[in-house]
Design a protein around this nucleic acid. Sequence first.
DNA 1: CAGTGGTCTAGACCACTGA
DNA 2: CAGTGGTCTAGACCACTGC
Lengths: 242, 242
Amino acid sequence: MHSVLADEFRSRIASGRWPEGERAPSEAVLCREFGLSRGPVRQALSTLRAEGLIVGGRGRPPLVRRNAVRHAASALGSFTAWAIASGHTPGQRTVEQSRRRADVEAAERLQVSLGDPVVTVRRVRYLDGEPVMFENQHFAWDLGRLVMDFDPDSGSLNSYLAACGADLYASTHEIDAVAASADEAADLDVLEGSPLLRVSRTTVDSVGAVVEYADDLYVPGLTAITFENRLFGPQTREGTTP
Amino acid sequence: MHSVLADEFRSRIASGRWPEGERAPSEAVLCREFGLSRGPVRQALSTLRAEGLIVGGRGRPPLVRRNAVRHAASALGSFTAWAIASGHTPGQRTVEQSRRRADVEAAERLQVSLGDPVVTVRRVRYLDGEPVMFENQHFAWDLGRLVMDFDPDSGSLNSYLAACGADLYASTHEIDAVAASADEAADLDVLEGSPLLRVSRTTVDSVGAVVEYADDLYVPGLTAITFENRLFGPQTREGTTP
DNA sequence: CAGTGGTCTAGACCACTGA
DNA sequence: CAGTGGTCTAGACCACTGC
């Protein structure tokens, strides 16, 4: 219910039914309109507040925010889903899909023993035909087994894994910047040494075990990672926009 | 109450009273222990879940997560507060503090008219004596008036503004990578052209008007921006770690 | 099966804001 | 002052999990 409400509110803002800069309906009004108690209405509104679409309150009139971030998609996890949600056409070219024995880095980041089997997938990712990201994914064998049966040129590995019922619970991201190596530069069509945005991701399952890690290299300017940050309140929401 | 609870839970994990990888108490148990209803207990737990400190649930036993991110401080907004929270000593050297007329970029990003007064503060920021960030902040005049009375070498501009009662409501961040210019390279003690992490921030007040924008350039390796991302659920939390 | 978290209801009191 | 969101209570039903 509350997520249905949130979608409804978002579309009302997008359609101009709730004009930007004007007052938004109060919680009480929305409760009456939908015949719901405050719980789900508050939950939906807090999502929109976290997204920065509604501001004010606590005595102040609630306002639909001017100049809100648009198309702040959520997941850094799925390139394909993000690209489609942003209205672009995703593509990929697979550089490597292999089963190998864990080296020191893989053993440490996946928390497996040296020499345990791991699966690596390396792909250049395209947006509307233009290379925007170099993706280096590494899977522990439980997931890797499934990944070896996947055609990496067919699109979203994430939806494939989700369809397999894989247990992907949460990701930790660390962002920094690196200079492009000669190989990366060639694949991404930039100059060697030019700055790339590196997103290092570690994904765990619902019992906290590491199941995947990745180092994704984004070409700056073509894509950017964005997120909202409520000051004096921990509500946040992140996303990426082309 | 719920924030007090969240702090209590965090310290129990930090102290080992709730050992990592073991079962965490269920909501029902915590309700009994603290004599509270489910509301505040759930609110506190959802914060820890968003931080990745607790995983599982929905039938599965709740677990204290192994290898949780540590010191995932919240605000990209205040360098000083973040540095201190991370156990480091912040410092700064002011390069510029000026009142000027808005150029095209400032007018657009602050949504003021060309030529309106704006205040610029540019500072090199240090962590334990080492330069880690080049900060370029720009304020609309309402806030800028206050900023001109601030000694930028004294530390946190944010706490100064907060003490003045400034209305800072939410920030939007956009992250990409750029090559260091000669000036920036010299100030940050890196080579010209080496990659820097650029965080572009826009801060609005509680009625949605832009009050500040900033372009902060971080030296990679010394600091990194991190955040958690619950898959199949929009709960997130971001932070930065040295 | 009992236990888990996810969700919803229908009340309540508070601090704060704007008129 | 009336209206706002922030918070808490004390119930309830559900889908899912592990035993």
